[in-house]
């Protein structure tokens, strides 16, 4: 087997792994019951799938410039995927789009309840975790 064929075989294997992981991510997004769970599927297998696809491309690259272009793709995906997942998950939690019956513990709800209870006792505004002032959180109770 020549070197080029070995590289081709490597690319095939990595592309196959990428396809499987992306499929699993897609299945997870459909099958998981609430936005918080779905975001797990949208970040983790998706990133590894992307890594595999980029490695497959890198193996076929004929010059360094192509490989150099792959690096920022991965870097920005790794930086932005958790942030977008956090924003969607946070919005989902705040708008009560979550399956409470699937949570065995929720320490954020506990903290919010405690903040509301403290505020009621001292007759002040609740000191909510992650409070953003330009947002109306007065009735924020999951």
């Amino acid at each position: 087997m020549s070197a080029a064929e070995l590289l081709d075989l490597g690319s095939v294997l990595f592309l196959f792994a990428a396809a499987l992981l992306s499929l699993a991510a897609g299945v997870g997004i459909v099958r998981f019951p609430d936005p918080l769970s779905r975001m797990h599927a949208a970040t983790k297998p998706q990133i590894l799938g992307l890594v595999c696809a980029l490695v497959a491309l890198g193996l076929q690259a004929e010059n360094g410039a192509t490989v150099a272009a792959l690096v920022p793709i991965l870097a920005f995906q790794m930086l932005t995927a958790p942030i977008s997942a956090h924003m969607v998950g946070r919005a989902g939690y705040r708008t009560r789009h979550l399956r409470r019956d699937l949570l065995i513990r929720d320490e954020l709800a506990d903290a919010i309840d405690k903040a509301h209870a403290d505020a009621a006792r001292h007759d002040t505004e609740p000191d909510l975790p992650g409070l953003v002032t330009d947002e109306d959180t007065s009735d924020w109770r999951p």
Binding site: P45, Y93, I104, R105, E107, L108
Partner: peptide, 18 residues
């Protein structure tokens, strides 16, 4: 997570922790 997505035994139980 890929396995949990296709696990035939159903979806996992989760938690939010501080």
């Amino acid at each position: 997570v890929a396995w949990q997505a296709v696990d035939p035994r159903g979806v996992p139980v989760n938690s939010v922790l501080a």
